[in-house]
Design a protein around this nucleic acid. Sequence first.
DNA 1: GGTCAACTGCGTACACTGTACGAAGAATAG
DNA 2: CTATTCTTCGTACAGTGTACGCAGTTGACC
Lengths: 256, 256
Amino acid sequence: MKQEHSGSGDPAKSLELLWRRRPAPSRGPKPALTVDGIVAAALRIADADGLAAMSMRRVADELGVGAMTLYRYFPGKGELLDVMLDTVYGDLPRRVVPGDWRAALDEVARENRELYLRHPWLLQVAISRPPLGPNVMAKYEWELTAVEGIGLTDLEMDATVALVNGYVHGAVRTAVESRQVIQRSGMTDKEWWLAHVPHLDQIGDLKKFPLSSRVGTAVGSEFDAPYDAEHAFEYGLERLLDGVSALVANRTAPEG
Amino acid sequence: MKQEHSGSGDPAKSLELLWRRRPAPSRGPKPALTVDGIVAAALRIADADGLAAMSMRRVADELGVGAMTLYRYFPGKGELLDVMLDTVYGDLPRRVVPGDWRAALDEVARENRELYLRHPWLLQVAISRPPLGPNVMAKYEWELTAVEGIGLTDLEMDATVALVNGYVHGAVRTAVESRQVIQRSGMTDKEWWLAHVPHLDQIGDLKKFPLSSRVGTAVGSEFDAPYDAEHAFEYGLERLLDGVSALVANRTAPEG
DNA sequence: GGTCAACTGCGTACACTGTACGAAGAATAG
DNA sequence: CTATTCTTCGTACAGTGTACGCAGTTGACC
């Protein structure tokens, strides 16, 4: 996959766009479009057909204008993506679970998971140096709230939130890739495995990989894809929170 | 980022390519290239300039042939990527640490990390349904060895290996993205943050995000990028293995 | 040795991409 | 009324993966 990148323009212009602070022009003709309208069209396309289908020409077509018209509203595609990101972050419920850090982190993980599942193209946008729009800021604040006041340092709070977010990203990416490959190929994972095994055994000698054969077969016969993804997510999240729990316990009673 | 996909051709052809079992043709002129030569050229480009730079035309140029010539050796770009993947997996040392599952899993994580750092383009290829070449098989076998015989079920073994691999993928992706964005923008994260804060405060009122301000400042002043990535990796891996540890302890002494 | 089938290399073409440039027209300030 | 600013958008450019078909080379068979 190719990564899609944010706009690298100057901070002032980007923040103006994200916070909708562009001063209305006085002199020329009235603009036919709005930033929100363009973003909505782009989101419709990305949600339905993926990020690869979201070209500037396609978005322009959706709005009934020429492709270059969009460049009057956004410096480039990167900035459009930035605003799309901040916009979908606005859909997070951001429920706060007070008094129970584990339940709160669990909620953070699940809301992020839902968001990725609703907008799979999010998995493909690079988010180091996120666009600092209102919803990106609110999301980070909400996530930190989950681990505030439980004895972690500021640095550990940030690392923990990043850890959970990274985990969710990876888990959903795997699940979505699996879902997409099933659709594209018209084969389940089990069918795919069964189509390969005979050739593989003849050409590469499966007996040289006893653990892979045993475990691979167990996984293939036990799981079908959606169930698998669901359980992998639950399994990993539990391990992760157990790990954080050990740290929190250590911070709460360090003189032991 | 756009995902790059594997070839979807029939298993026989793909496995033939991966295991180098293509019968040498008897009739026509001798081929001027070899599968290994093409893969080596493609790897040189991908390692140096990234996956986006690795176009069929560029690989062909590197070898001094026309673009379409490559299609005599690979059905398409996807299959070339498959063989590239299996090839770099061959560079893993695959050191076995006997008798200590935690050290063994740690080794798995670190070797995978090194591999991703050496070939960052690996982060962008989708690996659900990996190409079943000799090195892909050996890697999976080696990873399962780390968690064999410690009381986990076959399903838990697979889930644990997948969890560690997913974690490493995510951690390295974050680190590499950060490294790349610093290079492209010529700004460190701290400089970037300091360039945004004044505009952000004026336009969006930072006082509404007290935790973000506090933690963000702490992170910004304490870390520079490479140190940050290193520590984030260590921190997360420790949490993860602590979580697995809790499960293993539970399986070892379940009647407590 | 001649013939034919199989094989290799590769030029051209097609439908895409993001976006630089500049022309044509509309709205308003003076 | 004019000058300025602002809009829409056609055209162009350098890329992408790869389908198609042609020219030339080689070895197998008669």
